[in-house]
C-alpha cells in the first residue's frame, strides 16, 4: 500500500501573534515552528496502516528549507521518504493544493492523509482541494478509519455526533484529533533521520486565487468587571447577564 502524508510547518500554538511591518503577515521573530499538530495524526495513521498492510510512506511538504525540520520529524517517526516541494512565496490554499496535486498525481498513492487544518491559516481546505484536483473521494475530520481491500469506512466528526462514511481507494483522508495517539520518535529514529536524504523538487508555479489585503490583531476587549469574590455574587451576575448583556 502506498501512503502519503502531507505535512505543514507552522508556528507553535503557544505563539503570541504579532503582525509584521508589511501589515500582511506575522512577525516571525522569536516564533517557534513545529509540525502542524493535526499532521502528526496523519503521519501516525500512515505508520499504523503500513504496520497492518505493508507498503511505503512518503511525507511531503511544500515550503522553504525550514520545512525540512518537520520532514525530519516525520522521518524520525518512521516514514520511508521525505519530499520538499521548494517554494518561498505566500500561497493561498489553492496555490498549495495545486502544487501538491501535481506531485501526488505522479505518485498514485492509495491513501493521502492530511491534517484537518493548518493551525496557522485555519483554512481546512487543502486536503479536499487536492482530492478534487486528483478526481478522488475525500473524507474530512476523520477520527476512525478502516481499510479492507479497496473499501474505506471512516468516521468523521460533525456537530453533535459522528457520521460513518463509506468510500473507496484511492482517497484523501483529513485527520482530526482522536484518530490516534502519535508516537514519540525513538532516539534511534531521531539519529537515523539525521542522515536520511530529503528529496527536493521545485514546486510548480503559484496558482493562488486570493490575496491577503491586510492582517491585524483582533480588537482587545474593554476591561471586564469583577462582580464579586464568592457565591453571594451569583444573583448580581445573573442580573447583569439578563439586564445588561441581555444574553439570558
Amino acid at each position: 500500500m502506498k501512503l502519503i502524508a502531507c505535512v505543514n510547518h507552522v508556528p507553535d500554538t503557544a505563539t503570541k501573534v504579532n503582525v509584521a511591518s508589511d501589515g500582511k503577515s506575522i512577525d516571525r521573530t522569536g516564533v517557534n515552528f513545529i509540525i502542524n499538530p493535526y499532521d502528526e495524526f496523519a503521519v501516525e495513521e500512515c505508520l499504523r496502516q503500513k504496520e497492518k498492510n505493508g507498503g511505503e510512506i512518503i511525507a511531503v511538504s511544500l515550503g522553504t528549507d525550514v520545512h525540512k525540520e518537520t520532514l525530519r520529524k516525520c522521518l524520525a517517526m518512521g516514514v520511508d521518504k521525505a519530499v520538499l516541494l521548494k517554494d518561498d512565496g505566500a500561497r493561498d490554499t489553492f496555490g498549495v493544493a495545486k502544487a501538491l496535486a501535481e506531485y501526488l498525481r505522479e505518485q498514485a498513492a492509495d491513501v493521502i492523509f492530511f491534517g484537518k487544518q493548518s493551525v496557522d491559516g485555519d483554512d481546512a481546505a487543502v486536503g479536499p482541494m487536492v482530492a478534487e484536483l486528483l478526481g478522488i473521494p475525500s473524507v474530512t475530520v476523520v477520527v476512525k478509519v478502516a481499510i479492507a481491500g479497496t473499501k474505506v469506512t471512516a468516521e468523521r466528526e460533525i456537530e453533535g455526533g459522528h457520521e460513518i462514511v463509506e468510500t473507496s481507494l484511492p482517497c484523501v483522508i483529513t485527520a482530526q484529533k482522536g484518530l490516534n495517539d502519535p508516537r514519540y520518535p525513538s532516539l534511534k529514529g531521531i539519529m537515523g533521520a539525521k542522515n536520511k536524504p530529503i528529496e527536493e523538487r521545485p514546486a510548480s508555479p503559484d496558482a493562488s486565487r486570493s490575496t491577503v489585503a491586510a492582517m491585524r490583531k483582533p480588537k482587545a476587549k474593554a476591561g471586564g468587571k469583577i462582580v464579586g469574590t464568592d457565591a453571594s455574587a451569583a444573583q448580581e451576575l445573573v442580573r447583569l447577564l439578563h439586564e445588561e448583556a441581555k444574553v439570558i
Partner: peptide
Amino acid sequence: IYAGKAVT
C-alpha cells in the same frame, strides 16, 4: 487566522 489571534 491562528484561531482568532489575528484577522485578515
